[in-house]
Amino acid sequence: MSINNNIRNYYEQLVAEEILARLPGSQDAGYLADIACVALNHLPPRYIRHEVDMAFYMSPDELHDIHQRVKQAVADAIEFIASHRRDDLE
């Protein structure tokens, strides 16, 4: 029995949405994935089975805090990847 298809990190979708909002257009998929990995590694894991699980248990203040943390993590990740990008990998 596999549980992998039944759980996910709540932050993954939020980080992906924030990256696409900040970097619209045709960015390299590897570059976007690098940003997502760095950002997610700076956020605490919040595993859920259903989106409604988070909405039910979070206050509006907690939800606002999560969105602010995602924005900061993505901004920091973009800066980090930009300053550490290797030209030979492109």
Score class of each variant (00 low, 15 high):
23 L>G: 07
41 N>L: 08
23 L>M: 12
19 I>D: 01
63 L>V: 15
65 D>A: 02
47 Y>L: 03
1 M>N: 15
32 L>I: 02
4 N>R: 11
61 D>N: 14
41 N>P: 00
2 S>E: 15
85 R>M: 11
31 Y>C: 03
68 Q>N: 05
35 I>V: 10
44 P>G: 02
50 H>Q: 12
81 I>E: 14
49 R>G: 04
17 E>P: 07
60 P>W: 07
8 R>N: 14
26 S>E: 10
61 D>M: 09
75 A>V: 01
29 A>E: 13
86 R>K: 09
42 H>V: 00
75 A>E: 15
23 L>C: 11
78 I>F: 10
87 D>W: 06
25 G>P: 02
33 A>R: 00
49 R>I: 13
24 P>D: 03
27 Q>D: 09
77 A>K: 07
89 L>V: 13
10 Y>W: 13
34 D>W: 03
80 F>G: 02
10 Y>H: 13
44 P>M: 00
88 D>V: 14
2 S>H: 10
40 L>E: 01
3 I>L: 15
45 P>K: 06
75 A>C: 14
13 Q>A: 11
66 I>G: 00
28 D>V: 01
80 F>T: 10
76 D>Q: 12
32 L>C: 02
27 Q>E: 12
4 N>P: 11
83 S>F: 03
23 L>Q: 03
44 P>A: 00
60 P>R: 06
12 E>W: 06
56 F>G: 08
90 E>N: 14
17 E>G: 10
4 N>Y: 12
24 P>R: 04
51 E>D: 13
26 S>V: 07
85 R>E: 12
87 D>I: 14
2 S>A: 15
79 E>V: 04
68 Q>P: 08
67 H>S: 14
71 K>I: 07
81 I>D: 14
42 H>D: 10
54 M>Y: 09
38 V>K: 09
70 V>W: 06
81 I>F: 07
26 S>F: 04
51 E>S: 11
52 V>P: 08
22 R>T: 07
30 G>E: 05
63 L>K: 01
47 Y>W: 14
68 Q>T: 12
55 A>C: 11
35 I>S: 00
76 D>V: 02
20 L>E: 13
25 G>R: 02
68 Q>V: 09
47 Y>V: 06
45 P>C: 03
12 E>S: 06
